[in-house]
Structure formats: C-alpha cells, structure tokens
Amino acid sequence: MSLTAVAFTLLFVGITVFVSMRQKLGLERDIIIGTIRAAVQLMAVGLVLQAVFRTEHLAVLLPIIIAMIAVAAWHAAGRGKGLSGIAWRIGIAIAATEAMIMLLLLGLHIIASTPQYVISISGMTIGNAMVVAGLFLNQMKRDVESSRGEIETLLALGASVRQAIQLCMKRAVKASLIPTIDGMKTVGIVQLPGMMTGMIIAGADPMQAVRYQILIVFAFTSSAAVTSIILSLLSYKLWFTEAMQLRRLGNE
C-alpha cells in the first residue's frame, strides 16, 4: 500500500468527525487526537519491529514485551480509579497470561521461536488481556455499587470480604468473557478477523491463514479467562478498607 493510499484513509476519519459534529456528540477532539496518536504510534512500532525482526536474539524481545505489559496495565488501570495498587495487579494478571500462552505455544512448538511470531502474538494476547481487565473493572464497579446493601449485610453477619463480594466477582468475570465468547461463536460467519484477512491480502494460502486464526481465537479465549480470574483474586480486597468496610470510590 502506497503512502498516497494511506493518506486517503483519512477520509474515514473525516466522516467520523463530520458525524460527531452533525450529531453534536462532542467527540471531534478525541477523534483527532486518537487519529494522530494511532498514526504516530503505529509508525514508531513499525520502525522498531523492522529492526527487531532482523535480529535472531530472543533476549531483545523481553524489554519490548515488558513495555507492552506495562502500558496495557497503565491503560486498563484507568478503569479502576480509586483502587490503590490496581495497576500492578493488572500487570501481574496480564504477565501471567502472556507467560502461560507463550510457554504453551513455544513449548509445544506450535509457533517458531522467532521475533516475528513472538512479538506479533504477544501483542494480540496482551491487547486482548488489557480489554478483558478493563471490562472486568467496569463491571465490578457497577455490580459492587448496585449490591452495596447486600455486601454490607453479609459483612455485618460475619462474612469475610471474599465471601461478601464473591457473587460480584463471578458476575464481573462472566461479563468480561462475554465479548470474547460471542466473538468465537461468530468468527468466520459474521466477521473475518484481522489477522486472517491480513495474511490473505498479503498472499498467504487461505487455509494456512485460517489455521493461524484458529490459534489466535483459542488463545484469546484462554487468555481472557485467565486474566479475569487472576485479576479478580488479586483485586477483591481493594474494594474494602482495612476495617472491612466497603469503599465508596466516587468519594475518594
């Protein structure tokens, strides 16, 4: 794709801005900032990956993956404002998920241990885990607030904080997994995933592209479940004070 063709894609952004202005949504500034950030970030990543893919040293990959996890954790932590220490807990959940996926893929020789495969699949895995973490925190906030009376009653009756918030945790984990599960049910029929489409456009055999997409879909499902469960176990105490009282995040 030529730079001219890429420039023409700004027409899509223009349409989005026009719709926002027409409907008075007030999203024009966010759309423009997002467009600039996306272009700059992707170009920078492209240059970095171009250099990384030329090396055969896997040690070069570790700082890149750590940086990806740190940024993902920082971004997802924005959904948990008021919860002290939520960022590093998200980081641990995402790192554990990434480690599990990579150990299985590399240990079973499903993918080659080259930067091209490791970085690409790590990026998709970490990005999916970040989204799941954000969904989990959003649902927990809503559920804890709506169940405040029930939780405080359980605490008054002598339940531990884990017992009092257990149902909220289960509902939040379930809610965070729904988009991934729904996507798995409709993949190939309602939507043609980006990885498969990209490989086909690049000239790969469609069946080969499908095999890699199946790998990604199954890995995403596993990573979503592991991320949400680990995060729920690491973070449930943050919803309470040291005196075992339920926090009011909006007032902190």
Rank of each mutant, 00 (worst) to 15 (best):
S147A: 06
Q163T: 15
I121E: 00
V161E: 14
V6P: 04
R22H: 13
L104W: 15
R171I: 01
A243S: 15
I110V: 15
T4E: 14
M195T: 10
V131Q: 14
S228P: 04
W88T: 07
S228C: 01
M130N: 10
W239R: 02
Y117K: 02
M196Y: 04
S147P: 00
V132D: 00
L3T: 14
A59G: 12
G80P: 11
I229P: 08
I65Y: 11
E98K: 00
K174E: 14
A129Y: 06
S147C: 08
S122G: 09
G250D: 15
G107Y: 08
L83T: 05
F136M: 10
Q41M: 03
L167A: 14
R247E: 12
I15T: 03
P63D: 03
S223I: 04
K174V: 09
V19M: 10
V161I: 13
I200P: 01
N128F: 00
M68E: 04
M21R: 14
W239Y: 15
I178A: 08
S2E: 12
T55M: 07
R142Q: 13
A133T: 08
V48P: 01
A209L: 00
L108T: 15
A156L: 07
M244S: 15
A5I: 13
V71P: 05
M140E: 09
A87Q: 15
I31L: 09
L105N: 08
A224G: 05
